Simulated assay, not measured.
Amino acid sequence: MVSGDGPVLVLVGPPGSGKSTIGKLAAERLGVGFRDFDDDMEAEHGKEAGDLVVDFGRERFQELEHELLVRVLPQHDGVLALGGGTPTAPGVPELLAPLHVVFLDVDLDHLLKREGLVALHPWLMPNPRAHLRQMLTERRPIYTRVADATVETNGRDPQDILEDVLAAMPVR
């Protein structure tokens, strides 16, 4: 991918970190389109991402994510919110390297307070705290590595988070 092609901003972070909420606000402020990669996966495969992981297994699911991301990145020049696990898929960090990526960081206690998170992600059952703790431990180093900036979201108003995300963007 040639530098300058693809999304103007890519948001990464765990489920419930606010990628879709902040992504829509950022797209509106920047006057560009917004795309949620989980929606792209569902449109492509006819099922929600969590169901696809169960159906195909993690390894095949990540291959499908990579294949779709290769097609989506050059087509979209707005804001892209990736699925929580997408940056962990083999080859994805390299795809993200030329793009501006912001990691929306959130701690375990704040994640557990997010309404509807467990219902949206049934794989968190029967012990959401243990699953989320493990997920954050495994993924945080990857999110940090692929991101140009990290924005803390714990207990913050979306507009305040948006300001920090926009302030972290390179001058265009």
Rank of each mutant, 00 (worst) to 15 (best):
V2K: 11
S3D: 11
G4D: 12
G6V: 09
V8G: 12
L9A: 13
L9E: 08
V12W: 03
P15D: 08
S20F: 07
S20H: 01
T21R: 04
K24N: 01
L25H: 05
L25S: 07
L25D: 10
G31Q: 07
D36H: 06
D40G: 02
M41K: 07
M41A: 09
E44L: 08
H45V: 02
E48K: 13
A49Y: 00
A49K: 00
G50F: 06
V53R: 10
F56W: 15
F56Y: 15
G57M: 00
Q62E: 15
Q62S: 08
L69W: 11
R71C: 10
L73P: 06
P74N: 03
Q75F: 11
A81Q: 05
G83F: 12
G85T: 14
T86Y: 03
T88D: 03
A89L: 04
P93G: 02
P93I: 07
E94D: 15
L99V: 03
L99W: 05
H100V: 03
V102M: 07
V106E: 05
L108A: 04
H110I: 06
V118Q: 12
L120R: 15
M125Y: 09
P126G: 14
P128C: 14
A130Q: 14
A130M: 10
H131E: 15
R133L: 14
R133F: 11
M135N: 00
M135F: 03
E138Y: 02
E138D: 14
R140I: 00
P141L: 03
R145G: 11
V151P: 09
E152L: 06
T153N: 02
R156G: 07
P158V: 04
P158Q: 08
Q159D: 14
D160T: 03
E163V: 15
V165Q: 09
M169Q: 06
P170G: 08
V171Y: 05
